[in-house]
Write a protein that binds this DNA or RNA. Sequence first.
RNA 1: GGAGGGGUGGGUGAGCGGCUAAUACCAACAGACUGUAAAUCUGUCGCCUGAAAUGGCUUCGCAGGUUCGAAUCCUGCCCCCUCCA
Length: 294
Amino acid sequence: PTATGKSSLALELCQVYNGEIINADSRQVYRYMDIGTAKPTREEQAAIPHHIIDVVDPDEDFSLALYQSKALKAVEDIERRGKTPFLAGGSGLYVWALLEGWRIPPVPPNTALRQELEDKAKTEGGKALYDKLKEIDPVAAERIDPRNVRRVIRALEVSQQGKLFSELQVKKPFIDSVIIGLTTDRATLYQRIDARVGGMIEKGLVAEVESLVARGYGFDLPAMSGLGYRQIGKFLQGEIDLPTAIQHIKFDTHSFARHQYNWFRLKDNRINWFELVEDTSQAVHRFVQRFVVK
RNA sequence: GGAGGGGUGGGUGAGCGGCUAAUACCAACAGACUGUAAAUCUGUCGCCUGAAAUGGCUUCGCAGGUUCGAAUCCUGCCCCCUCCA
């Protein structure tokens, strides 16, 4: 989960094992969003090559499919040069799509259709859309909550292109990997999160958000819905005061960390878990040694 | 000293005689997830039993009282807030 020190550990490992980092954080892909996403610093990025960071502007679309193809290219590129790719980040969807080789339905988003369906959901209710999906792809409907309009719409979007959403969800690994997880007890994790949020404010998160706004990026953009950005947005728009905004960021980040454990379960035996203790980093080094040739 | 307002489940805060173990929100806890994913959506949330329907027990400052029945009405006490002196 967030705030456990993934990035700095990855950096250390890369230095020892001749590696390069592939970002697996869904928010660090956006340019100009540095403080709030806890992006590696310029110096860190200069020390070790980082991939898939700062690849789109905040008002550009980004997606799982795009991420996956970029990440695969990065893996190939790094390996071709005789180095070792280290994937670092906590966006579960992205991580597993890459490591498990999800074949993502090759149907790009259809903005017009989505808008149309969203309007329909608003006027006729989400049930209407869901019923339609049940007709077209009952298997997919079975797996999607009728109230989750966003996912119902995507399933419809895919299924209307011919092949069914439910039939296109295939897993076939592209690459081999060893997975390391960092974890700690909840109280400690929440403390670390709170401290980090405090640090972000000190580093100028408010100014960063202001500058994004000044560049013309509005709070309705998906990129601006990220932790830190939307709460500071409410502050800048006068809806809440700064201390309240900061508290919201902390709470929402706790919730995010909990959410991350749904993707990375402690009982998931594909993951090699390391508790955060004094010598965690050494323990991980010893572990990684078994798999990587310097 | 006088006048008024208030004390509700971890927090904020509804309820103001039965439909109430008690709206809602937050926190917390658990879960879903294949082109927005730090998104979107769901469940639990007094205690004990149970897979569940349910059943039992204890709750709305404290102590009494009225009533078939009280968080809701009455009395006393304690505490908090505002205004006047």
